[in-house]
Amino acid sequence: MTLHVLHYLHQGRARWGVVANGAITPIPGEFKSTAEFIEANSVERLLVLGGPTIPESEVQWLSPVTANQQFICQGANYRQHMIESGMDPDVKKFNMIFTKATSCIVPADSPVVKPSEVRFLDYEIELGLVLKRDITSRETVTEENLHEYIAGAVIVNDYSARDVQIPQMQFYKGKSYRTFGPVGPYLCLLEKQDVPKLKELVLTLTVNGTVRQNDSTAGLVYGPAETLTELSGVQDLHAGDLLATGTPSGCALSIPSPEKMRAAAQLPEAEKWRLFLKMQEERPQYLRVGDVVEAQIASYDGSINLGVQHNVVMEEAA
């Protein structure tokens, strides 16, 4: 059985609670990180939690992934997104991994601040997976033991400054501006029997009420098990760390066709990127100040529902 947890601020105090039908049952204890919360609270324990409740409308959302955890991301990990990015999913044989600064993590209803120097601000709805335990050596993660490694799921929006990320070849810089990583609202804790449903979640993102992205996690190219296996051979991972698993097709970014990319490769660098930026200028999908972005992820049967992110694009203060 899944369990939905909210990290929230109430009467000046940061708390964690179980959410059901718009009411929060506070969880006893102080937890300064997502790792501390996960390590102290099993699903079995929280299922029998009782006591007075608080209306969710009376609290302020916080991110269920705290800024003292790692924020690891997969790029170009849905088949259709790879195709629209000029890649062949049947030929590309590597898992693209990068990180975002944890200072970009904000609550799910936070404004997204468009930096003054950024022209092409893009959205990327992603399924985020929160780790259940530390991984400090090479391990083999399989579909059968994945439940031992994944505590739960969250919504992530990997906002991206495309005019920084692509021409400067700066994934980290282009995706790490403050507010570029809203997480939540809910952390959906999973039991063993729930983990297979991670393959059948529907991701939907709208801008000003118009659907821009809509796909299922069935379209993932590199799944969580093989990705965690690969990462375990590279670096230490910790309980509470966040893995964002990639975004579906439908982003604002426009990539030239393979033929145009080959032709552009012969051009001087300055001219190549001038043409790239000119192509982006023709895309009305890029976010503007005042746009409203909503993202939601849920299973077909409704047993997993990660809530709705609501972000308004704001201009950077002078």
Rank of each mutant, 00 (worst) to 15 (best):
residue 297 I to D: 15
residue 108 A to S: 15
residue 160 S to P: 12
residue 241 D to P: 09
residue 295 A to R: 10
residue 187 L to T: 14
residue 164 V to H: 04
residue 210 T to N: 09
residue 209 G to E: 15
residue 42 S to I: 08
residue 43 V to E: 03
residue 265 A to V: 07
residue 261 M to L: 09
residue 229 T to S: 04
residue 192 K to L: 10
residue 28 P to K: 05
residue 8 Y to G: 06
residue 268 P to H: 02
residue 166 I to N: 10
residue 107 P to G: 11
residue 280 Q to T: 04
residue 217 T to A: 04
residue 109 D to G: 00
residue 55 P to D: 14
residue 76 A to I: 13
residue 132 K to T: 02
residue 54 I to D: 01
residue 248 P to S: 09
residue 176 S to E: 11
residue 3 L to I: 04
residue 80 Q to A: 10
residue 240 G to D: 12
residue 63 S to D: 12
residue 280 Q to I: 01
residue 126 E to R: 00
residue 165 Q to A: 14
residue 147 H to S: 08
residue 136 T to K: 11
residue 68 N to Q: 02
residue 188 C to H: 01
residue 87 M to D: 10
residue 114 K to W: 03
residue 315 E to W: 00
residue 183 V to W: 09
residue 103 S to Q: 09
residue 306 L to M: 14
residue 313 V to F: 03
residue 16 W to A: 12
residue 308 V to Y: 00
residue 221 V to L: 12
residue 91 V to C: 00
residue 121 L to Y: 00
residue 144 E to A: 11
residue 188 C to W: 04
residue 201 L to K: 04
residue 301 D to N: 03
residue 11 Q to H: 09
residue 67 A to Q: 12
residue 5 V to H: 00
residue 263 A to D: 09
residue 83 I to M: 12
residue 250 G to E: 12
residue 38 I to M: 01
residue 288 R to G: 13
residue 83 I to W: 10
residue 224 P to C: 06
residue 265 A to K: 11
residue 60 Q to L: 08
residue 101 A to M: 06
residue 21 N to C: 05
residue 217 T to I: 07
residue 192 K to V: 14
residue 13 R to A: 12
residue 6 L to Y: 04
residue 109 D to Y: 00
residue 308 V to C: 00
residue 42 S to N: 05
residue 128 G to L: 10
residue 111 P to H: 02
residue 70 Q to L: 09
residue 27 I to M: 03
residue 312 V to D: 00
residue 70 Q to W: 00
residue 266 Q to N: 05
residue 63 S to P: 08
residue 146 L to W: 05
residue 82 M to W: 11
residue 204 T to C: 14
residue 226 E to A: 02
residue 47 L to D: 11
residue 70 Q to M: 07
residue 96 M to H: 03
residue 135 I to W: 05
residue 151 A to E: 14
residue 50 G to A: 03
residue 112 V to Y: 01
residue 191 E to Y: 06
residue 93 K to Q: 11
residue 170 Q to T: 05
residue 234 V to F: 02
residue 282 E to A: 04
residue 42 S to M: 07
residue 230 E to I: 05
residue 171 F to E: 14
residue 153 A to L: 14
residue 282 E to N: 05
residue 284 P to R: 13
residue 169 M to P: 02
residue 107 P to Q: 12
residue 69 Q to H: 12
residue 279 M to E: 10
residue 60 Q to G: 06
residue 10 H to T: 02
residue 286 Y to F: 15
residue 236 D to F: 01
residue 222 Y to S: 08
residue 72 I to T: 07
residue 16 W to N: 15
residue 227 T to F: 01
residue 205 L to K: 07
residue 43 V to N: 03
residue 117 E to R: 01
residue 259 E to V: 06
